Simulated scan of single mutants.
Amino acid sequence: MKEAFGATPSFLLWLRYSTFLVMYPIGISSEVGLIYLALPHIKVSEKFCIRMPNKWNFSLDNFYIAFIALGIYVPGSPHMYRYMLSQRKKALSKSKRE
């Protein structure tokens, strides 16, 4: 809207920066829940795992990568949420000044 018409209606700007308040926690919790529920299947299937010996002398286990992802999501999600709140505050306060 802004690129086409030069301005964005205030309700669309508010909607853009406010829907994450509900959608973000739902998205993060569903991703974490799905990773957690998939862990037993990942361990049994060993899909996309690289076992040694191979020509690269390298081993990779997808089960542990999923644990690392959980370890990043859990402490990282509050930080990302606070960042989005600050972006919302900045964008909505800028629109009120204009």
Rank of each mutant, 00 (worst) to 15 (best):
M1A: 14
K2R: 14
E3M: 04
A4D: 13
P9N: 09
P9K: 07
S10F: 11
F11S: 07
F11M: 02
L13Y: 01
W14D: 01
L15R: 07
L15Y: 12
Y17I: 00
S18G: 15
F20V: 00
V22D: 00
Y24S: 03
I26P: 01
G27F: 11
G27Y: 06
G27M: 12
I28H: 03
S30R: 04
G33K: 05
L34K: 04
I35D: 06
I35R: 07
Y36K: 03
L37S: 11
L39N: 04
P40W: 05
I42H: 08
K43M: 05
S45H: 09
E46P: 02
I50M: 13
M52Y: 13
P53W: 10
N54Q: 06
W56E: 13
W56P: 00
N57C: 05
S59N: 08
L60I: 00
F63I: 02
F63P: 03
F67E: 04
F67N: 10
I68S: 07
I68G: 09
L70A: 03
L70S: 03
I72E: 07
I72T: 11
V74K: 03
P75R: 08
G76P: 02
G76R: 06
H79N: 08
M80E: 10
M80P: 00
R82Y: 10
R82V: 12
M84R: 15
L85F: 09
L85E: 13
S86I: 06
K90Y: 05
A91K: 15
L92K: 01
L92N: 00
K94L: 09
K96I: 05
